[in-house]
């Protein structure tokens, strides 16, 4: 939300009034920008990850942080539909779920074939009436799990696919996949990535430009050696 033409003399009053209704001033310049997230699993039928909770955790710790080499944007998408475009952010999270057939707890597969029909990458085939999942093709979008009418397909692994180094602007580039199925350690990973970025980047160098310069593997090593 942008309020144009606020005179500098009135800025403090505007900030106070916004604060009263629970709104903070946005960050600009070389700072940790406002986190963008889709509504995620709490509302969306496709949602896999709890985007709201992760966004709040990151927001509380990092929003508005200054002293960075350049701006730093975070996008959090609840599933591989990627509506919030996590690949276009310095750091992106995308909720994923890897399916497995599990007929325990009375969730018996009725061989309906919905999973095979809905899979967008044809990773599922019914063999002797049961889904056989080719994990080399699977994109972990959870469509089969969400549409299974008996609940016999469940997530075997869940978490976030983490992208680093995406950006838009005059020289757009998509982020690299940094890690997969990250869950509890997501916030700690933000700390490590931010630490390595601040340590290695030149002034006014975006994370993607740093990785272009030193390579993904070097950056990965730097993140791993970062003390938290």
């Amino acid at each position: 939300m942008e309020i144009p033409f606020v005179h500098l003399d009135n800025l403090e009053t505007v900030a106070e009034e916004l604060d009263e209704v629970g709104l903070k001033l946005g960050a600009c310049g070389p700072r940790f920008r406002v986190i963008t997230a889709c509504q995620g699993v709490s509302i969306c039928n496709h949602g896999l990850g709890d985007t709201e909770s992760l966004a709040k955790k990151i927001d509380e710790r990092y929003y508005g942080r200054s002293g960075l080499p350049h701006k730093f944007k975070v996008g959090i998408a609840g599933c591989p539909n990627a509506c919030i475009k996590p690949q276009e952010n310095d750091l992106g999270f995308m909720g994923v779920a890897q399916p497995i057939l599990d007929e325990s707890n009375g969730a018996e597969c009725i061989s309906c074939g919905i999973c095979e029909d809905v899979c967008p990458v044809k990773a599922i085939q019914l063999v002797d009436g049961k889904p056989q999942i080719d994990l080399t093709r699977c994109i972990n979008d959870g469509k089969c799990i969400n549409s299974c009418p008996t609940g016999s397909l469940r997530p075997e692994r869940e978490g976030w696919t983490v992208f680093v180094g995406g950006k838009f602007g005059k020289h757009p580039q998509l982020g690299w996949v940094f890690d997969r199925f990250v869950s509890e350690e997501a916030v700690e990973l933000v700390e490590r990535i931010l630490g390595a970025y601040c340590r290695l980047a030149h002034k006014r160098e975006r994370l993607g430009e740093l990785i272009n310069r030193i390579g993904l593997e070097k950056f990965r090593e730097a993140v791993q050696s970062e003390q938290v």
Partner: peptide
């Protein structure tokens, strides 16, 4: 429709007995 309705039914405590294309 086929992706959503059976799933909604199940999540509200009903049981899918059969489903055939």
């Amino acid at each position: 429709p086929i992706q959503n309705v059976p799933r909604s039914a199940r999540s509200e405590g009903h049981k899918i007995l059969n489903l055939k294309r």
